[in-house]
C-alpha cells in the first residue's frame, strides 16, 4: 500500500516537475511547482515526518508560492518567455548535462543493488560514530511527531534556531532596502 502511494505520487511529482521546467508561461510553472510541493508533503508523511509535511504545505505551498505568484502578477511576466538571444546553441548541452547529473546521482542511490553487499547504507546507525540523537523507545513512524522534533530543536539545535531568527531579520531588512524607491532611480 505504501509502495503504491509512493509510486503514484513519484510519477505525479516527476511529471509536474517536467511540466514546470518545460512550460513557457511563468504562471503555469508556478502552479505545477505548487503541485510538486504537495507531492513532497505526501512523501514526508510516508517517511513519518508529519511536522515537516505540515510545514511544507504552510511555508512552501503557502507562503513562498504566494510570494512568487504575487511577483509574477506584479511584474506581469506571465507571457511566454522569449527564446534565447545569446548562446542558444548551448541549449541541448543543458539537457544532456542535467540528464547525466541525474543518472549519476541516481546511480549512487542505487549502487547498493549492484554491489555484492546488500546495501551500502548501514542499517543501524553506530551511536559512537555519529553526533546525532538516537531515538530510543520511539518507533520509526513516530519519529516525526511534533513533540520529538520540538525536543530536539530546542535542545541540541537551539543555537542554529536562534541564528535563523537573525537570518530572517537580515532577509527582511535586505528585501526592504532592495525594493525601496531610490531618488536617483525614480
Amino acid at each position: 500500500m505504501e509502495f503504491v502511494v509512493f509510486a503514484v505520487f513519484a510519477a505525479i511529482s516527476v511529471t509536474a516537475a517536467l511540466f514546470m521546467v518545460l512550460q513557457r508561461n511563468a504562471m503555469y510553472s508556478a502552479l505545477f511547482l505548487v503541485l510538486n510541493f504537495f507531492c513532497f508533503a505526501v512523501f514526508f508523511i510516508l517517511l513519518g515526518a508529519y511536522f515537516l509535511a505540515v510545514v511544507q504545505v504552510a511555508v512552501y505551498a503557502g507562503a513562498i508560492m504566494v510570494l512568487m505568484l504575487f511577483v509574477i502578477m506584479l511584474l506581469n511576466v506571465a507571457y511566454p518567455e522569449p527564446l534565447d538571444k545569446v548562446l542558444g546553441f548551448l541549449r541541448p548541452f543543458g539537457v544532456v548535462t542535467a540528464v547525466v547529473f541525474a543518472v549519476v546521482l541516481a546511480g549512487v542511490g542505487l549502487a547498493s543493488k549492484m554491489g555484492d553487499n546488500a546495501s551500502i547504507l548501514p542499517t543501524i546507525a553506530d551511536p559512537s560514530s555519529g553526533a546525532g540523537i538516537m531515538l530510543k523507545g520511539v518507533g520509526a513512524a513516530e519519529a516525526g511527531h511534533v513533540q520529538e522534533v520540538a525536543a530536539t530543536l530546542f535542545s541540541r539545535y537551539l543555537f542554529p534556531f536562534e541564528v535563523t531568527s537573525v537570518l530572517l531579520l537580515a532577509a527582511i531588512l535586505g528585501a526592504s532596502v532592495l525594493v525601496r524607491k531610490r531618488a536617483e532611480h525614480a
Binding site: 515537516l52 540523537i133 538516537m134 531515538l135 519519529a143 530536539t152
Partner: peptide, 8 residues
Amino acid sequence: FGRLDGQI
C-alpha cells in the same frame, strides 16, 4: 538511520 537530525 532512525535519527531526527535530518528532519531538523
